[in-house]
């Protein structure tokens, strides 16, 4: 096993273990921390795939912003009160069964597909090569060679995917309106 493969497996196992921790921990704060660990491992995977920009953004947005808000809410709402009800209910058996079956099905197919394509070892080099040689063609202008990660992301986000990006901004606006509408405690009396 090469060092790169080892790094991949360590990070991947961490990410999955963190995700499992999120759903099995009883204390919400611990769940949030497991999620944080999972995010960090995913950021590591981005570095492994030579996507440093994504890694930095992953930490900045998810670890620095989203999770802090989560923790803030959890601590504000439920200060150290242990959940009384059982974490799993009478559907446990069937849920686990369906989950395992689905996992076996999808996982098996993915493994088969990965074998066909030639394993994960070749992936980072290939993706890095693709990133570093990204050539951007603007309308009516000479092709521009994109230097790094950030530029590649920028070209992709603000040019190729401009429309979905803008729709997503309306989406976020709606999320904000919704949070205010549903979250406001007192109803304003209109005359």
């Amino acid at each position: 096993m090469t060092a790169a493969a080892l790094a991949f497996w360590v990070l991947a196992v961490l990410a999955v273990a963190g995700a499992i921790g999120v759903v099995t921990m009883r204390q919400p704060v611990h769940s949030a921390l497991c999620l944080l660990a999972s995010f960090m491992a995913v950021a590591g995977l981005f570095v492994w795939g030579r996507a440093e920009f994504l890694a930095a953004v992953q930490i900045l947005v998810y670890a620095g912003g989203v999770m802090v808000l989560f923790l803030f809410t959890i601590m504000l709402v439920n200060v150290r009160r242990q959940a009384r009800e059982a974490a799993l209910n009478r559907l446990t058996g069937s849920a686990v069964l369906v989950g395992v079956l689905l996992f076996a099905l999808v996982g098996g197919l993915l493994v088969a597909e990965a074998r066909r394509m030639g394993g994960p070892e070749g992936a980072p080099a290939a993706s890095a090569a693709r990133l570093s040689t990204t050539v951007v063609e603007a309308a009516g202008k000479a092709p521009v060679e994109v230097k790094g990660n950030s530029q590649a992301v920028a070209w992709s986000l603000y040019r190729d995917y401009l429309l979905p990006f803008e729709i997503a901004s309306v989406f976020l606006l709606v999320a904000m309106i919704g949070a205010v509408v549903l979250g406001k405690r007192t109803m304003e009396k209109f005359d």
């Binding site: 979905p164 989406f171 709606v174 309106i177 919704g178 509408v181 109803m187």
Partner: peptide, 26 residues
Amino acid sequence: THLASIYVALELMALSQYVLAGYFKQ
């Protein structure tokens, strides 16, 4: 005609509707 734009548009529609469903919050 592109799965990315379809998905984002779908979410825009759906999120507005989640809020509308709970609009009568009392």
